[in-house]
Design a protein around this nucleic acid. Structure first.
Lengths: 199, 199
DNA sequence: GTCTATAAGATGATAGAC
DNA sequence: GTCTATCATCTTATAGAC
């Protein structure tokens, strides 16, 4: 198989970036975990930055695919957002995508920052879409601002990771998302009898 | 002055840790910014870890002091929390304390993680206290869970940093905190006429 | 396509002069 | 207390054999 090594390198890099960040991940570490030599890595990719950019693009896609598992699932908009917030996550490892924003080398390179930006923007856009859908159906209050609330929801998850990693305890993450779910619940529009008549 | 160099080293380290993280900050960089030689650094501190631990303790204290400027200020509990959320911040630089959670070397060392954990826990505890005060006074709904909501509020700020850094734009941070303020507003207890009678 | 050998530079730390 | 060597190690990358 011509791309066996290539695929192993990407997988190893995705893992290491998630565990150690970009600056903390050396080509040597990647090669060891992938079980390939240096030559293989430099043959398939343009150095560490090229390999990391490819790995981050895959991790960004994976983040959106995982979120879609909740967002495109069954139930009301509230149910789907709550499902997303409660989804099982490697909380103490942090978000493989979001954590890249704290790495100065990633932020200094457009090639590395682009996949991170894209994934987080798409995530917020998808949440915003859902909230619009919830407003149109009358499930959510007309007063909420979907794009704004989408940022707050995405921030709750990203910030939950930060708080939990700091204390090596999933509790802050759980508290943060459960607190957000309670706040969202209070944004549900009161039952409107005219809705069922119109339906 | 015997500790002129020491103090310059701490300041330089605080800046560099905030800008580049721990792994991305070399002793050489610190010495250059502080304008001192290597010998001075190793005389005053137990290497890079010792210096960083001292710097992080100061940054943690500074975070709490800055928050206290809002929390201990005038106005209702809601006003004070909103003031905290809207406070001017170096959004695109990230939180000098929170960002340390993404550095594997910091997380692997109890000495380095401790000041980060302490500061973020104290922050959440202080927000929780405020919310309890708000419930006692009847300002906030009795239904909210203060510790949980405190985690959600702290996470909104930390996550807002992440989203904004990813897109090099303060908008996501602003959206996240304004969205949170709107959510908090809906947790205010409806005006209770019995309150003014009791007062 | 993959390997090993090698290199130029950075990293974190120590030694010892002043 | 502060400085300038100096050091062993690691980092990213290239060269060239297979």
């Amino acid at each position: 198989m011509t791309s066996e090594s290539r695929s192993r390198l990407i997988t190893a890099t995705r893992e290491l970036l998630a565990e150690r960040g970009y600056t903390g991940t050396s080509p040597q570490l990647i090669q060891e975990r992938a079980g390939v030599g240096q030559g293989s890595m430099y043959h398939h990719f343009a150095g560490k930055p090229g390999l990391a950019a490819a790995a981050l693009a895959e991790s960004g896609d994976a983040l959106l695919a995982a979120a879609a598992g909740s967002f495109d699932g069954p139930g009301s908009v509230f149910d789907r957002v709550a499902h997303y917030l409660r989804r099982e996550r490697p909380v103490l490892h942090g978000c493989p995508v979001g954590r890249m924003t704290e790495d100065p080398e990633v932020m200094a390179s457009d090639a590395l920052r682009a996949p991170v930006e894209l994934a987080l923007q798409r995530l917020q856009a998808r949440i915003s879409e859902l909230l619009v859908e919830g407003q149109r159906s009358g499930e959510f209050s007309a007063r909420i601002a979907p794009a704004r609330l989408a940022a707050t929801i995405a921030a709750t998850v990203q910030g939950g990771y930060v708080l939990s990693k700091a204390s090596r305890d999933v509790q802050p993450f759980t508290d943060a998302v459960e607190g957000m779910i309670e706040l969202l619940q209070s944004q549900l529009a009161p039952a409107d009898p005219t809705l069922s008549e119109r339906a």
